[in-house]
Amino acid sequence: MTDSARKALDFGGLDDFQPTRPAERPQATAEEQRRVVDRASTFPSREPEAEGQLNIRAPNDMLTRFKAAAKKDRYTYGAFLEILLNSYEERA
């Protein structure tokens, strides 16, 4: 018999382990489950930041218009920039 032909042990069968569907477990969402762990864990997140910063140089009146328009509907500058970009891309 070659080494690789050695028969695997059968552990007495493994049918007592069966897949578990999500409905059988408490229905906490992944986000809730993460929050529970976040409260106790001291291991830090190693995920790269999903947000960055952009420093824009433009005429002062343009910057004033941008800030005022964002403020009017309570958008953050980032969210308002997205609206402007979407509008620009629709026209293109």
Binding site: F17, P19, T20, R34, F43, P44, R46
Partner: peptide
């Protein structure tokens, strides 16, 4: 949902990912 066994191999750093998988 599809397997009898799930085995998770984690990165070699102390990370929040480790804590989530452990939980």
């Amino acid at each position: 949902a599809d397997n009898q066994f799930v085995i998770v191999d984690l990165e070699g750093t102390a990370s929040r990912l480790t804590s989530y998988a452990i939980s």
